[in-house]
Amino acid sequence: MRLIDTVAWVCVEDGRILGTRSRGRTLFYIPGGKRETGESDLETLVREVREEVGVELLVDTVEPAGVYEAEADGHGADAVVRMACYTARHRGALRAGGEIEEVAWLTYADRDRTAPVDRAVFDDLRDTGLLA
C-alpha cells in the first residue's frame, strides 16, 4: 500500500461545500494538497488554499474537522489517500488559481462528482446537517 498524506480546507456555507476541479480532471476535490518537505499541516493548508482558491486563511480560526482515508483517485489500486481536514475562516474573494480550472459550491447531490475520500466528508457533513 502506498499512502498519500494530504490536508484539506472544509469550507461550508449555506449548506454547500467549496470544491475545486483541476485542469484535465472530471472530479471535484476539497481544496488542499500534499505537504512540501518540512511543512506542518497548518503551513500546507495555508499555502495550498492560497494557491488553489486565492484566499488567506485566518490561522487563529483553524480547527481540526476529521481525518479520512480512501482509495486515491488516479493513483493505482495500491494507493490510499489520508486527508486531514480543517475548517477556518478566510479573507479575500474565492477564485480559481494554479492548476484549478473551476471553483464550485457543491451539495450532497454532487457527492458522486467528487474523489472517493471527499465522499466520506460529504457523508459526515450530511449526517451532521451541515450539507444540504
Rank of each mutant, 00 (worst) to 15 (best):
R2M: 10
L3Y: 12
I4P: 06
D5S: 12
W9R: 04
V10M: 06
V10T: 05
V10C: 04
V12K: 13
E13Y: 07
D14M: 06
D14T: 02
G15V: 04
G15P: 03
G15F: 11
R16F: 08
R16L: 13
R16V: 03
I17T: 10
I17A: 14
L18K: 15
L18M: 14
G19A: 07
T20Q: 15
T20F: 06
F28Y: 15
Y29D: 11
I30S: 08
G32D: 13
K34F: 04
K34M: 11
R35G: 06
R35P: 14
R35F: 14
S40E: 10
S40Q: 06
S40W: 02
S40C: 03
D41I: 07
D41P: 03
L42I: 14
E43H: 09
T44A: 02
T44S: 00
V46K: 11
V49H: 00
E51I: 09
E52H: 01
E56D: 15
V59G: 00
V59Q: 02
V59F: 00
V62P: 00
P64E: 09
A65H: 08
A65F: 06
V67N: 07
V67G: 07
Y68E: 09
E69V: 15
A70Q: 12
A70V: 01
A70C: 09
E71I: 05
A77V: 11
D78N: 05
V80E: 05
R82N: 07
M83N: 07
M83S: 08
A84G: 04
A84Q: 11
T87L: 02
A88D: 06
A93W: 02
A93T: 08
R95L: 01
A96R: 05
E99I: 08
E99H: 11
I100M: 14
I100W: 09
E101N: 09
V103G: 10
W105I: 03
W105C: 02
T107R: 14
Y108Q: 03
A109Y: 04
D110R: 05
R113V: 05
T114E: 14
T114Q: 12
A115H: 11
P116R: 09
V117Y: 15
A120M: 13
D123R: 13
L125P: 05
G129E: 12
